[in-house]
Amino acid sequence: MNIFRFFGDLSHLASIFILIHKITTTRSCRGISFKTQALYVTVFVTRYLDLFTSYVSLYNTVMKIFFIASSCYILYLMRVRYRPTNDPSIDTFRLEYLVGPCVVLALIFNYGYNPTELLWSFSIFLESVAILPQLFMLQRTGEAETITTHYLAALGAYRALYIPNWIYRYFSEGYVDPISVTAGLVQTGLYLDFFYVYFTKVLQGQKFELPA
């Protein structure tokens, strides 16, 4: 554990609390992609299956349970409690374009041909693109509530902080996990456009609006 990793995880936790706060205080999940949230549940469940087989630390276990539980809770909020505020007609990204390639990539790039390793690898690839339906929706509507942009910024910061974490680990442990690093770089890259608008508009007090 190093500070980059720790603050990355804190940022990830913060993003989830911001999202739950947004949905429950506005009593609406408008602007949030159900597909992206469903992908996160898939990511967490497939990756954290090792909860039952390998123990890392209390921190690790508690965080894994939290991520699975909170992502399921968000789906519940969107699908049940605030269902009328969820508009599927603008959440149109085709999931098969994401899931299919991730299955193929996991079959090619993995650390062992057994269910746990294949699912782990699949979850890493899937996480790297899970935000795309959300970004696609943002692109389509051309604007976002400020609280939603804070959610995305916290989520992007979590990914960005994992990069110095890997650099630090390379020098302190002399090992690089090529699957995590490659997928992580791609994932962080997807946020670059968003971050540009976030820093130049939202943090200057303006509304998040994309040029027409």
């Binding site: 990830h12 890392v56 680990r169 090992y175 699957i179």
Partner: peptide, 10 residues
């Protein structure tokens, strides 16, 4: 090594 170092990450 004994596996891949990022398995302890979240």
């Amino acid at each position: 090594g004994s596996g891949h170092s990022s398995k302890d990450e979240l």
